[in-house]
Design a protein around this nucleic acid. Sequence first.
DNA 1: ACTTGACTTGAAGTTAAGACAAGGTGATAC
DNA 2: GTATCACCTTGTCTTAACTTCAAGTCAAGT
Lengths: 118, 118
Amino acid sequence: MLISEVSEKYGLTQDTLRYYERVGLIPTVPRKPNGIRDYDDYSCGWVEFIHCMRNSGIPVEVLVEYVHLYQQGSKTKEARIGLLKEELKSLDERIENLQATRKRLAYKIEHYNDFDKA
Amino acid sequence: MLISEVSEKYGLTQDTLRYYERVGLIPTVPRKPNGIRDYDDYSCGWVEFIHCMRNSGIPVEVLVEYVHLYQQGSKTKEARIGLLKEELKSLDERIENLQATRKRLAYKIEHYNDFDKA
DNA sequence: ACTTGACTTGAAGTTAAGACAAGGTGATAC
DNA sequence: GTATCACCTTGTCTTAACTTCAAGTCAAGT
């Protein structure tokens, strides 16, 4: 699969895909003899996963670390799970935070005439 | 109230408070005769509100616009409500997105042994 | 009088996460 | 056989949202 197709498929620009690979967010993508990227299912799986995680705001740095651990093999499994659990926790916090703000905002809209103030 | 106290109270650095005022995220804070900021309840209210909104990721630019409208007086009320509704909507979207990712992440952790793949 | 510490302003620096540009290669289209 | 693509790499630029810096003022303590 060409980079243009992967770009299309996941809604990431080609630049972003190359960037992800460069910084180690995605394991090296296989090349054709002439050096052109040829994404296989494995690479696409990574793209899809990373895309999702990035979308939810997990920092590049953290994901780079995850990929790095992954590449060390099965001995890092616990570390990887630990990392994911951390992120899950911080995701939960963010969700709660957003929900609180959401509530406040909805209330403010609802009662906008009552105050003239923040 | 001094900037140091406001900083303490809301957990924003003094620099951030000055920055917020400079870019118009908060209406101008009153000064003592010697030029030192003297936050009153009105200013504090804004700080608190803006802090909360920023925390939830609403862009500075949008909030600046809101404050700007606010300062035009009551004729902009509808516009302000509209703006808030927009943000509420985008907040909802983000929350849903995060919840989906949260679910995926939780599942991945739960079944980590089943895959060796993303 | 002098240092200390909190404050002021305006400008320049930082960081994360890409976006963009320049220059180059190789396969296909005419 | 040359023009045009789609791709490559390397390196610089951009944007948001602060943060830090430089240079100075002012009030209080010793």
